[in-house]
Structure formats: C-alpha cells, structure tokens
Write a protein that binds this DNA or RNA. Structure first.
Lengths: 218, 218
DNA sequence: TCCTCATGTAAGCATCGATTACATTTGGGG
DNA sequence: CCCCAAATGTAATCGATGCTTACATGAGGA
C-alpha cells in the first residue's frame, strides 16, 4: 500500500503498544503523567514523568524547554478540566437569578478544589503561568473573571446588593473562596477545628454567609 | 593557617567575628540565612544557607536532621515575628469593641502578609509544620485562633452579629484574609485588575465589607 | 526507494539533600 | 593548668534531579 503517495490511503496504524516512538503524543502523555503524579501526591519531576512514559530522561526536553514549561502545560490541562466543571454547574443556574449563579459558581469552585486538591494547586500556584506564559490560559482565566463580574453587575442592576462597590465584592468573594480552597490544600482545617467530613458543608455555609452579607435585606 | 598561638588572650568571650566555629549559634545563623534567602525570593537550599554562614555544606545537618527541619525552624521564627506584630496591633484596640478588634486583627494580618510575603509563605505553606511538628508553634497558633474566637464571642454577647453561627463566621473570615494574602503571594492580583499600589487599600476595603456583612444593622 | 527531519537515546554536567568518616574546637574535671 | 570527651565543623561521597549536547532511528514525503 505504499503505492499511493498522493491520496489518503494507508492508515498504516500500528497498534499503540507496538510503537517505540510516541511520535508527537509524548507531549500529551507527559502532561497526563505529571497530572497523575501530582494527584498521587508525589513531587512531580521530569524524570519520573519520563519514566511513566517509558522514555529516556532527556526525551521530555524535546517537547518542553524546561520543567516549568511542563508544569505550565499540566496546569493548562487542569484548568481546562476545572473550567468545564464550572461551566457545567453554571449551565444549570438560571440567568435570571444572578446571586444564585454566584452561589453556584462558588460552590462548584470549592467542590472541584476539594476533590482535586493537587490539580487545584498547580493551577493556582502562580509559579508557572503567573504572567503571560500561556495566552490561551490567560484568556480562559479572564473569561471566568468576566463571568463573576457579569453576575455581580446583574445583581446590582436588579438592586440585590447592599453595596455599589462591585470590584470590592468581587475581590472579597474570590479571596474567600480561594482562601478556603488553600486552607484545605495547606492543611489548615485541622487546626481550625474543621473535620474532614465537615469541609464541604462548611464550604457551602461560608459561601452562603458571604452572599447574605452582600445581599440587600428585603 | 595552623600557626596556633597557644597563649591566646584568655578572653573566654571572644568577639563574635573572631571565632571560626559558630558554636551553637550556627543554628540561629542558618535560620536567619534561610529567612533572608526567602525574603530575597531565592529558592532556599541548605547549601546556600551554609554558604551564607561561611560553613561547609554538611554543617547544617549537625543542627537540623534535614532540610524541612531547617525550614520549620525558619517558619517558627517568622511566625514569632508575625505574632508580635499582631499583638502590637491588638494592644491598641479597645477590648470593649470586639468588632473593632476583629478589624484591627485582620488589617494587621494583611499588612504583615503584604510586606513580608516570603515569610508569610513559609509560615502558611503547611508543608513544614502542618501537624504537630513544633509544639511551641502549634500552641502559638492555637492562641491566635483562640483570640479570634474570643472576639467573635464578645461580639455575639453584645448582640453585634446577625448570625449565631460563630464558627462559620470565623472560618469565613480566616478564609477571606488568608485568600487575600495568598492572592498577593501567588500573583493573582494583576489578573483581577488590582494594581500594586492599590492592594493595601483593597485589603482594608475587603475586611470592612466582610465586617459590615456579619454585623447586625443598627 | 531514498532522504530528511522530527523524535528519542546516551552520556555527561552541575546542583541539591543527605550520610559517613575524620578533624578540630571547646569547656569542664582531674 | 592540662587533658580528654563531647560538640561542632570538614571532606568526600552517594543518589536524584534539571538540563545540554552529540548521536541514533524511524516515519513520512519526494
């Protein structure tokens, strides 16, 4: 079947097990390995990721200029998963109820962070794509931020808020939710007397407290 | 340089500069070096700390069983400084005004975190003394936590709070303040549209927003 | 079929944390 | 006052890591 150079022939597809070279998808394989390592609580090293991909220690550097680039790519992937989850949750929240959407957003955020702590960490650590490292991710992130802005603007337009300083509310809400997620990540909850099984309920409680704090009493 | 003048000036107390062996205060010197490295934004390594102390790479391990122990000690020292600052701020806040104390606490917390980000990080990262590594530090921390509890209990006793769920308020407040500090640490503020010079003011705003949210309207 | 380039390998460098055997300093007891 | 034992620091070394360079190979286009 090598006779047909011009047309699209020959899916000479090898079985995946049979190919020694990853051939371009090593990149993806390495990213998955990095995410898996993180999820296992293991310190992510380039060599270990290579090991999981059954590839030489130098191979990853064909696809990533350095370790941080690999971590950044892993963070991008994690952020993608995070975002799809958020959007799914938001898809079920009626647009007519901006504070309800705000709440749904916060709860989805914390649920994901509680259940994927290692992935949440590499997303948020900021060591990897703090500035403009990944345009796609920067845009992705900006869209999520814009979403929260929109929800607050809608709420304000409906007269649901006690304060008109939307930016302050936005930052406070984000700090609340991020801080809660990081308290979990950084192992603070035991010393604050929050038991393991109590955390997700506390997450909801904290969000509700915040929302009732910014909402205009009717 | 082994020409040792056997009849050394008998001064039991040598000037600190003149002694080749640190003699027990290497420990302190290494801790300071670690804190200084962190403050400079340099990755803290045992070797570099040893280098700053003008001592061999193996010397630190006479004083710390491993790197984490050094970091834990550095974290202890940072926490000590943090705590003195908090207590100073609280010393000026009248006991009769629990919400005012709460506010002063939060503002002192954030001011210190904004101005000593690297030290704040090694305090909070939790990698070092998450569980019971340092009894002293655990107790120290528990006292600060108890302080917030007391302030909220006082506020509740004076009927200043809208909600009776003090634990929820406590965790929310802590998450808010911790999240704000970490947003700064992790470089999130640029993408949330908070300028450098605006951060401390925003910190106050966010705390005031929170307090006005939990306070009973009079 | 052959050639080229992307992909992976092999080997090596520097750094780091950590351990071990050895040297030196110090302070207290004879 | 001296000497010795413990405390402290040194030197050499190990294994792991990030990263680079020189080389091998295999896949797909001409």
């Amino acid at each position: 079947m090598s006779a047909r150079p011009t047309s699209k022939p020959r899916a000479r597809r090898q079985t995946p097990e049979a190919r020694p070279y990853h051939h371009g998808d090593l990149r993806r394989v390495l990213i998955d390995a990095a995410l898996q390592l993180a999820a296992e609580g293991v310190e992510v090293s380039v060599r270990e990721a290579a090991r999981r991909a059954a590839v030489s220690p130098g191979a990853p550097f064909r696809h990533f200029p350095n370790r941080d680039a690999l971590m950044a790519a892993a963070a991008e992937e994690a952020q993608r998963r995070f975002r799809t989850e958020i959007e799914a949750a938001l898809g079920e929240a009626p647009a007519a109820d901006p504070l309800g959407r705000f709440r749904a957003f916060g709860i989805a955020y914390l649920r994901w962070a509680m259940r994927n702590p290692a992935h949440f960490e590499i997303i948020s650590t900021g060591r990897y794509f703090a500035h403009g490292s990944s345009p796609e991710l920067t845009r992705d992130n900006a869209e999520l931020i814009a979403l929260t802005e929109q929800m607050l603007a809608d709420a304000a337009a409906q007269g649901l808020l006690r304060s008109a300083d939307l930016k302050r509310i936005q930052i406070a809400g984000r700090a609340l939710v991020y801080g809660f997620a990081r308290m979990n990540l950084d192992g603070h909850f035991p010393r604050w007397g929050v038991e393991e099984g109590e955390i997700e309920r506390m997450a909801e409680g904290v969000i509700d407290l915040f929302i009732s704090g910014i909402a205009r009493p009717d």
